[in-house]
Design a protein around this nucleic acid. Structure first.
Length: 485
DNA sequence: TGAAATGTTGGGGCG
DNA sequence: ACGCCCCAACATTTC
């Protein structure tokens, strides 16, 4: 009678779980464990939103495992001590887990591999996190792609792995486990009524609703943040409450159900971006610490605590930017179009380091994921692999007018502007005194005037970015504001 | 998965 | 009929 430990990390599901399925096949008893490490990912500044989502997902996982005869065990970390102890208690001869890309998990897993091996057991990692593995998508001369489009061309040709069967009977023995309610990090969480909810069955419902109702209009609607058009799966993909394979398969199968090919193609493109950014992090782990493109180390980012505070508070005076930042604060999630606009504003209108924005997002977003968050920020700042060119500066007014033409998104998240007429909802500072009175919104008191002049700051950004071309200029280090302070 | 500046074209008003 | 100007619409270039 063989026993195997399945170590859950960011794969908090029973269905289509590669390592768990393998453990179920290879052993008659499976011990599913989640370890309360000081880290469960390697992002700086894990905030309450992710802890909240994680807690819900773990509670749901415990229930889900009961359905297949499993009992989830919670143990304090570090994993390199908890796992050998568990091996001894259960007589298990192996630890199975799904692999994770990132500097922290890879270092952690190396230490665990050593500890498990020293305890006389086997440590096995399974490919599960991504649709395609880094080793499977290489360009000419076996070099990793640094540009998305050729990556995507290759990515589409690769057959995606089949989904793993759900385990039949895990037959977990009874073991000591930390009660979830006893965990300090989870005790004092503020209420988060609008945060995406965690859990495997929740993810499955989101996926079904997305594929049936929103995917068929995805291409046309996805860039409009007021429209309910996106998958909302980002936190689920981060925590593995749904697998990327299941999402991919559902989208592909939707083609047979009549979903237009263009909509499906665009959505698959987003899944490919996720793989791309993970591959970039795998091949170039230095991106976690700084610019992918070293010439940007010369860029003189500014320090502006007041500007940063206005940005975080959603009080920049640019409605589209402020709506995004307030959506983040309220929902612990932000629409991607708004993410690009607020990132452009932080880096190119306020000239603040993209890492300040990355940290704020990591702390605030339920879906914050090192590879995607870092990739997104370096894309927006122009410092990354296949990044937007540095001279691509978003105009917050035009972004609003293009993607929120009637101002619905702005009005939803910036209630001060609820009664501003559509023509001026993205430029409220152009209202006359009379118009301000009628809209019940005085600029400068009810809602701020723009804290910077976009036209002037765009020009300033172009001037600052010039420096990346002159090799003489010296690096300037700016301090990065701490989101918790 | 930009935007602004600059260039080109063509229709219409007008003398 | 013609040249001229204006300007919107679109294309191209530049940042």
């Amino acid at each position: 009678m063989r026993t195997i430990v399945h170590w859950f990390r960011r794969d908090l599901r029973v269905a289509d779980n590669t390592a768990l399925a393998a453990a179920g096949r290879d052993a008659s008893r499976v011990v599913p464990v989640f370890i309360l490490d000081d880290h469960y990912g390697d992002d700086p500044g894990v905030g309450p939103a992710r802890f909240g989502f994680l807690r819900e997902s773990i509670e749901a996982l415990a229930k889900g495992l009961e359905g297949v005869g499993g009992r989830l065990v919670l143990r304090p970390g570090p994993a390199s001590e908890a796992l050998p102890r568990l091996l001894k208690e259960t007589g298990a001869d192996a630890v199975y887990a799904n692999g994770e890309i990132g500097p922290y998990p890879q270092k952690r897993d190396a230490a665990v591999a050593a500890a498990v091996t020293a305890a006389g057991a086997r440590f096995r990692l399974f490919p599960d996190e991504l649709l395609v593995e880094p080793a499977d998508v290489l360009g000419g001369r076996a070099e990793p792609f640094r540009v998305f489009t050729p990556f995507w061309r290759r990515w589409r040709e690769i057959e995606k792995r089949a989904r793993a069967a759900a385990p039949a009977d895990l037959a977990t023995p009874t073991l000591a486990s930390v009660p979830i309610g006893r965990v300090r990090a989870w005790k004092d969480l503020p209420p988060q009524p609008l945060r995406p909810a965690g859990g495997e069955s929740r993810a499955a419902r989101e996926l079904t609703a997305f594929v049936e109702r929103r995917l068929p209009r995805y291409a046309a609607d996805r860039a409009h943040p007021a429209r309910d058009a996106t998958s909302r799966l980002s936190p689920h993909l981060h925590f593995g409450t749904v697998s990327a394979r299941t999402v991919h398969a559902a989208a592909v199968e939707a083609l047979d159900g009549g979903a237009p090919a263009e909509d499906v193609r665009r959505f698959l493109g987003e899944l490919a971006w996720r793989d791309f950014f993970h591959h970039v992090l795998f091949h170039f782990p230095r991106v976690a610490e700084g610019n992918f493109r070293p010439e940007f180390d010369r860029l003189p980012w500014k320090e502006d605590p007041g500007g940063f505070a206005a940005w975080t508070a959603g009080r920049t005076g640019y409605p589209f930017v402020d709506a995004g930042m307030r959506q983040l604060a309220a929902m612990h999630w932000m629409h991607n179009r708004a993410r690009m606009a607020v990132a452009s504003f932080l880096t190119k209108d306020l000239h603040l380091h993209w890492q300040a924005g990355e940290r704020w997002f990591a702390h605030g977003l339920a879906d914050a994921n090192l590879a995607n968050n870092n990739g997104g920020w370096q894309w927006a700042a122009g410092t990354g692999a296949d990044a937007a060119p540095y001279f691509r500066v978003f105009n917050p007014v035009l972004q609003g007018e293009k993607f929120d033409g009637d101002g619905e998104y702005v009005r939803r998240w910036v209630p001060e502007l609820a009664r501003v007429p559509r023509e001026k909802v993205h430029t409220p500072w152009t209202m006359t005194r009379e118009e301000q009175r009628e809209a019940g919104c005085r600029i400068g008191s009810d809602y701020p005037a723009p804290i910077v002049d976009h036209r002037a700051e765009r020009a300033e950004a172009l001037r600052l970015f010039e420096r990346i071309r002159s090799p003489r200029a010296s690096p300037v280090k700016g301090k990065i504001p701490d989101p918790k302070s």
